[in-house]
Structure formats: structure tokens, C-alpha cells
């Protein structure tokens, strides 16, 4: 098992180097530089522009800039935002918990609803339930996220007034940041109504962000279940005289979950990388929104860091999934 993990880690290194290159190059390919964007429509004196660029170190040849970036990176320094002049790491750490909180809730929603729904649909193939689940998940999968988010706001927030429109918590609450997760912090604060407010703010973004993962998980679980139920070893399990629930839970489910775990892992990676649309619609102060804002400001260090961190999370989650995969599927573990 240990060498399995080491082998997996070794494959990560080249990927990581590739990401730093891409993150560095991509943002510089967009026309305009940070100074021009800051100045905007006003006319800019070329001398002042050059001086500003020099001050930011952006006048250096690209390879020098890249090596400086990598050198800082190796020391754990993500640089300083060109716009706010704050360390990128600090900004990231304030915003990341919001993304994580939303991602965890969305994923829980997707797994807790999607897995059982897909499983039952697979077991009751061709039933009304099966058709219902597949229809709903197809709809969920094909729906544009921004439209779905707006529809929910219009109905539940505006018409019914059940949930708040946007943000993480009502403005009247001033919650001290301890964990960064507002659900926990508001609970710890002991302020009356704070936890409820935080929870209510989470509901709609959770549903919107969880919809696509839910649809994917439900479909994958169903098809995987159907496939496994046709396997010879299921016939063997039944020939042993095992009860139907034991056949499904012990013999079918474990094998059916193998591909589902991969799918869930991929979803975790993309959810943690920041939900750009959902965070924007609900003014959710997470890293998705941060990244989008920084791109329009050509805030090079922030964009580089944002891409790098998102990609790293994606890689780490995938690595974790691979390891988990090895735990669930003994055939992978011994593969050389």
C-alpha cells in the first residue's frame, strides 16, 4: 500500500510543474497589463508606465520572472496582490473556508440524495421511480447553472420569502472568525439566530452547486449497479442462499461503488476549485469569485496562485481517490 502511494505521488510532480508554467503563461497572454487596467481609460505616460512595471518587476524577461515566481513558490510564498497589496496567501486563507463550506454542503447533498436514488433506480429498473430519477437528473445535468440559481432565488427568496437572496449571513450578526466555517463559528458565537441565518443562506447555493454532481452521481450509481447485478458473482451470492438485501449491500454495492467513487472525487476537485457561477450569483465570498475578479484586474500573482491552488486541490483529491480506489478495489492495489 505504501509503495502504491509513493508511485502515485511520483506521477504528480511533472503535472505540478506543468501547472505552474500554464498558470504563469496564460494570464500573461491576455492583452493588457495590471497598470493599464488600473489606469483605465485615462491616457498613460509611457515613462510612468515603464517605471510602474519596473517597480512590480514586470519589466524583466519572462523566464526570469518565471524562475523568481517558482523560487518564491518553493519557499511557500505566493506573492503579493498587485491590487490590494496584501499577501496572496492571506487573502486566500480568508476566502477559502467559504468555498470549502459550500463545497462540503453541496457534495453532501449530492451524495446523500444521488447515491440512494441511483441505487434504487438501478434495483428497480424500468419502474416509475427509475424513470423519474433519470428524468430529473437529466434535467438537472442539462440546466444552465446561472438560470437555475436565479429561478430558485425568484421563487424561494422573492416570492415565498423563505430564504435570503445572497451572502453568507445576515448583516446584523458580527461573527468572530475561528474556523472560517460560518456554520460552526455562528454556532460557537452563541448569538441567537446566527446559526439559523448562516444555514438559511447556505440552502440555495448548496442546491444549485450540488445539482450537477447529484445528477452525475445518480446516473453513474444506477448504471454501475445495473452492470454489477448482471455479474456472475451476484448469481453465486444468490446461489449461496443469501438474503436479497445482503446480496445487494455486501456483494453488489461494494463493486458498484468503485466507479462512483471516481466520479465523486472528480466532483470534489472541481467543487473545491471554486464554484465561479454559483459564488457569483449568490455573492458568496469564495475563491471562485476572487479568481474571476482578479482576472479582470490582471492581478497576476492572485491569478497564478488561484489557478495553482485549484489545480493542486484537484490533484490532491484525485490522489486521495486513487488511494481510496485501491482500498475498495483489491485488483488495483497489486497492479504493478
Amino acid at each position: 500500500m505504501f509503495s502504491f502511494i509513493l508511485r502515485k505521488l511520483a506521477t504528480v510532480i511533472p503535472t505540478f510543474i506543468g501547472i505552474t508554467l500554464v498558470a504563469f503563461a496564460l494570464i500573461r497572454m491576455i492583452p493588457g497589463d495590471p497598470i493599464e487596467v488600473m489606469v483605465g481609460e485615462r491616457k498613460l505616460d509611457p515613462v510612468m508606465h515603464a517605471a510602474a512595471m519596473q517597480r512590480l518587476g514586470l519589466d524583466q524577461p519572462l523566464h526570469i520572472q518565471y524562475f523568481r515566481y517558482v523560487k518564491d513558490l518553493a519557499q511557500g510564498d505566493l506573492g503579493i496582490s498587485l491590487v490590494t497589496r496584501e499577501p496572496v496567501t492571506k487573502e486566500f486563507l480568508t476566502l477559502f473556508p467559504a468555498t470549502v463550506e459550500l463545497a462540503i454542503c453541496a457534495l453532501l447533498f449530492a451524495v446523500l440524495v444521488g447515491l440512494p436514488a441511483g441505487m434504487i433506480a438501478g434495483l428497480k429498473r424500468g419502474s416509475v421511480f427509475d424513470h423519474g430519477v433519470m428524468g430529473v437528473s437529466m434535467t438537472g445535468f442539462s440546466m444552465p447553472i446561472f438560470w437555475w440559481g436565479l429561478i430558485l432565488i425568484m421563487y424561494f427568496s422573492v416570492t415565498l420569502g423563505w430564504t435570503p437572496v445572497s451572502g453568507r449571513i445576515d448583516i446584523e450578526f458580527d461573527i468572530a472568525q475561528r474556523t472560517g466555517f460560518l456554520l460552526i463559528d455562528s454556532w460557537l458565537s452563541g448569538e441567537e439566530g446566527a446559526f439559523k441565518s448562516a444555514a438559511m443562506h447556505l440552502i440555495l447555493p448548496t442546491i444549485v452547486l450540488g445539482t450537477i454532481p447529484l445528477a452525475v452521481i445518480a446516473r453513474m450509481t444506477r448504471s454501475s449497479m445495473l452492470e454489477v447485478l448482471r455479474e456472475d458473482y451476484i448469481r453465486t451470492a444468490r446461489a449461496k442462499g443469501l438474503a436479497p438485501t445482503r446480496v445487494v449491500v455486501v456483494h453488489a454495492l461494494r463493486n458498484a461503488l468503485i466507479p462512483v467513487i471516481t466520479v465523486i472525487g472528480l466532483q470534489v476537485g472541481s467543487l473545491l476549485g471554486g464554484a465561479v457561477l454559483t459564488e457569483t450569483i449568490y455573492s458568496w465570498p469564495g475563491i471562485g469569485k476572487w479568481l474571476v475578479d482578479s482576472i479582470s484586474r490582471r492581478d497576476y500573482p492572485v491569478v497564478q496562485a488561484g489557478i495553482l491552488v485549484s489545480a493542486t486541490i484537484f490533484i490532491v483529491v484525485n490522489l486521495f481517490v486513487d488511494i481510496l480506489y485501491g482500498v475498495v478495489n483489491p485488483r488495483i492495489r497489486s497492479a504493478k
Partner: peptide, 24 residues
């Protein structure tokens, strides 16, 4: 019936590799 099947009557199949559960 399941108390008899697998206990008093049992069965082996053609392809043993696919007839055994790969995860256990």
C-alpha cells in the same frame, strides 16, 4: 427456500474467476 439453497443444494459454475466476488 433460502435456508435450503446454498446449504443442502449448492451449485458451482463454469467460470470460477467471474463467479467469485473480486472485492472479497
Amino acid at each position: 427456500r433460502r435456508k435450503i439453497v446454498g446449504k443442502d443444494i449448492s451449485m458451482i459454475f463454469q467460470d470460477a474467476l467471474t463467479s467469485l466476488n473480486p472485492s472479497y
